[in-house]
Computed example of a mutant assay.
Amino acid sequence: MKKIILTIALLCVSLLFTGCPSQQAWLTKQPPMYAKGFTDGCESAERFWQNNLADYKVVDPEAKNDPQYKEGWQYGYNKCYAEKETEIWMTRGRF
Rank of each mutant, 00 (worst) to 15 (best):
V13H: 09
I5P: 00
C12P: 04
A82I: 08
K36R: 12
K57A: 14
C20T: 08
Q50K: 14
D66L: 09
K70V: 10
L10M: 12
K64W: 09
M1N: 09
E43T: 10
E46A: 11
G41A: 02
C80S: 00
A54M: 13
Y77P: 02
T39I: 13
A54F: 10
A9C: 14
K84D: 03
Y75M: 13
P21S: 11
I88V: 15
F48L: 11
I88K: 06
L15T: 06
G93H: 01
A45Y: 01
F38Q: 06
D40T: 01
I5R: 05
Q50T: 12
T28G: 06
Y77N: 02
R94W: 09
T39G: 05
Q30C: 02
V58W: 01
M33Y: 15
Q23Y: 06
D66M: 09
S44F: 04
V58I: 15
E46C: 12
R94F: 13
C20M: 12
I8N: 07
Q24D: 10
C12Q: 07
K70G: 04
E43P: 01
E83A: 13
P32D: 05
S44M: 04
W49G: 02
G76I: 03
T39K: 13
F48S: 05
A63P: 02
N65H: 15
P31L: 02
R92P: 00
F48Q: 04
